[in-house]
Design a binder for these strands. Sequence first.
DNA 1: ATTCAAAAATTAATAAAATAGTAGCTCAAA
DNA 2: TTTGAGCTACTATTTTATTAATTTTTGAAT
Lengths: 129, 129
Amino acid sequence: MPRPKGKSELLTTVELEFMMVLWSIGSGTVREVLQGLGGEEKRAYTSVATVLKVLHDKGYLSAKKVNRAILYRPTLSKTEYEGKTLKSLSATLFNGTPTALVARLVDDEDLSEETIKEIKDIIDTRFGR
Amino acid sequence: MPRPKGKSELLTTVELEFMMVLWSIGSGTVREVLQGLGGEEKRAYTSVATVLKVLHDKGYLSAKKVNRAILYRPTLSKTEYEGKTLKSLSATLFNGTPTALVARLVDDEDLSEETIKEIKDIIDTRFGR
DNA sequence: ATTCAAAAATTAATAAAATAGTAGCTCAAA
DNA sequence: TTTGAGCTACTATTTTATTAATTTTTGAAT
């Protein structure tokens, strides 16, 4: 398929999975990321190496040689990526209006009283009342 | 076109694009959806037919024969899909906590005063104050 | 009944995402 | 200085997504 170039360039499922590990450990080599993936999926070492290389090519990771290995480090924080994702989602599904997104969120999840209060507090704290 | 395997997660980019049309027009045949896509992409008739068939196989569309054509209709409302998407996003990126999602949203988008008020109102309306 | 156009069904081609095998480099230890 | 463990680079394969051509079916008009 023609790759969606010029678009927001979000991560694929597997890329995101790997980035989660790196966001968690700060930086890591292929082996360390492989370790961090938690025995479930049992990928081959080279599979991990390939994806990390792709992420580096895409600019999501910086690469620094440490001894023989390459140490990868995110160039984008998880927080920044979260924002990027939300903006993209807002644009595609919610007509670019965060309001609609919030409305949907509080409707669908069955939120506890605590959660509701937390959300209220966030809004109030950010923008005063 | 390889049919998707059992686990029907979220919609792909193109599938979503097509569903948007159907959510907009309520229901439609292949030709009507093709029309609704707005001259931009200029897909072939059969491309549209294939994707709609896939969406039907995935259960996102019901199909009813009308004259010679098949009339497709969403089995899931856009609203419901929005909720599904948010839940998925919340799970993968925000550790399942809507709070974190809202926090990120109000931080990243630069919201107008109006928008902020709207969001506040939504929270207050839904859960009293 | 025959023809024909419009539609569905089938099949195929192309592309991207995901996984991993193979080759070859490099450095430390024997 | 040879060896081999550990690594990257390169290549290959498989699966999924996207697009579309080809074939078959259908039903209405002639």
